[in-house]
Design a protein around this nucleic acid. Structure first.
Length: 426
RNA sequence: GUGGGUAUAGUUCAGUGGCAGAACGCCAGACUGUGGCUCUGGAUGUCGUGGGUUCGACCCCCACUACCCACCCCA
């Protein structure tokens, strides 16, 4: 039997109702914050991700679905293509490709779509997963570096989680520095680790070589005392970054958006600068990050574009839906009327009535004339219909149809043109 | 990539070296144009795949695969 490939899955009703609920709420919210939808290709040039996310990151070096496309001519080499592992790079590429800085003001985009990473699947982690994300990007002259933008994004996210009814989230905030002060911190961290790293876990010894920042993220209890003594990024921020970060916090506090400063929050993509954040939720198992994001002030340049500071985030939609189901149940949309055609030749009459009713906005399902009435009513109840409409010889002759309320058992005779009104008023 | 667990009906799961099970769900009948409740009956299936041991393997052994959980990493 052919099955869904590893790390991918089918989303079935009624769960898809929850997904639609989430997406509808999200679009509604983006609308009032004046974000507009952008749809970028799922397939991109591999180099896009190497140059943005970073060639040395796990995402690019180990987790990409990438392959060499067929060459156009014998002499040429094929282009390397990749399934996108995230969507920010694609949005920034589109920003550059279409010279969107020529448009007035800041560009505010949102997207909803599948992303791909070749990881080992576990709870809340899939090889094809869905992200809901947004980006604010533009020239500095349009205000793209303003801390007000960071605060607006964070306030929007807090509102979103609240409006979806997700309880118990935590906003963790940090500033990870810019292109000039990050290397300084990097050095300080490495030299502080130099003598103590031998006492740390095997993963940390590896991280010391590959990416010392990740040491801060270590969860091994024995390593915690050592990590506490390490220098903090906050002490290495330049004046600009420091006031920027302070201003973000000030606005959030004024707005009443709760957050905690986590000096050890690091992100796994190279393009992040300054403000970095995660929203976490307890009910997600080890993959507790429901969304993450931050600033990427130098990303456009590293993709060959003009200076275009920006900030964005990505929500793990799979995880969002998961935490939503922890907090509340979902409601299925019930059928209004189940039509029970009764006897030979009744299917055509049922089809005609269904057409008339649906044009009036009634949700209709029809059975088959071969069904016994008992079976039709049974199916109607089981599938959650509120009413059953009997379409038989007598009804067609008289023009009055038997309409049965499946909850109460009450049955009335209703004129053909009164059916929609009858089920919609009650 | 590493470690642990699991794999039997549509679903959730029992089970024993000797005929494949329960509950729920599904289909049908009791009841020919009146559902839910009840009763009766039926189909549930390559017991994950491939080898091996054995008179005989769903059960024991080996390999593989998939799924789940954790590490790593991230959303």
């Amino acid at each position: 039997m052919i099955k869904a490939v590893r790390g991918t899955r089918d989303l079935l009703p009624p769960e898809t109702e929850t997904w639609n609920f989430v997406e509808a709420k999200v679009r509604e919210l983006f609308r009032v914050y004046n974000f507009q939808e952008i749809r970028t290709p799922i397939l991109e040039d591999l180099q896009l991700f190497q140059r943005s996310v970073g060639e040395e990151t796990d995402i690019v070096s180990k987790e990409m679905f990438a392959w060499e496309d067929r060459a156009r001519a014998q002499s040429e080499k094929g282009q390397w293509l990749a399934l996108r592992p995230e969507n920010t790079a694609g949005v920034v590429r589109a920003y550059i490709e279409h010279k969107l800085w020529e448009r007035p003001g800041l560009q505010r985009f949102y997207y909803i779509g599948p992303q791909f990473r070749r990881e080992r699947p576990q709870k809340g982690r899939y090889r094809q997963f869905f992200q809901i994300g947004a980006e604010v990007i533009g020239p500095s002259s349009a205000g793209s570096e303003s801390p007000a933008v960071d605060a607006e994004i964070l306030e929007m996210l807090a509102s979103l989680l609240d409006r979806l009814g997700i309880q118990g989230w935590t906003l963790q905030l940090n500033s990870v520095g810019n292109a000039s002060d990050r290397p300084k911190y990097f050095e300080a961290l490495r030299s502080a680790l130099k003598d103590v790293v031998v006492r740390m876990c095997a993963d940390c010894q590896r991280r010391y070589e590959t990416n010392p920042l990740r040491v801060l993220d270590c969860k091994v209890p024995e390593d915690q005392p050592i990590i506490e003594t390490l220098p903090r990024m906050a002490d290495y921020l330049d004046e600009n970054s420091r006031t920027h970060f302070a201003e973000v916090q000030k606005i959030l506090t004024t707005l009443g958006v709760p957050f905690v400063i986590n000096h050890r929050l690091v992100r796994g993509l190279d393009y992040y600068t300054r403000t970095a954040f995660e929203f976490t939720h307890g009910a997600l198992g080890a993959q507790n990050a429901i969304l993450g994001g931050g600033r990427y002030d130098g990303l456009s340049e590293s993709l060959g574009g003009p200076p275009a500071p920006g900030i964005g985030f990505a929500i793990g939609e799979d995880r969002l839906v998961m935490s939503l189901q922890e907090s509340a149940g979902s409601a299925a949309t019930p059928t209004d009327i189940y039509i029970a055609p009764l006897g030979a030749g009744m299917n055509v009459h049922a089809a005609l009535l269904a057409r008339e009713l649906r044009r009036q906005g009634v949700i209709v399902t029809a059975g088959d004339e071969g069904f016994r009435l008992k079976k039709s009513l049974e199916t109607a109840s089981k599938t959650g219909a509120r009413w059953a409409l009997i379409v038989g010889e007598n009804e067609v002759q008289s023009g009055k149809f038997a309409l049965k309320n499946l909850a109460t058992g009450e049955q009335t005779e209703v004129d053909r043109d009164q059916i929609a009104a009858a089920v919609q008023t009650r």
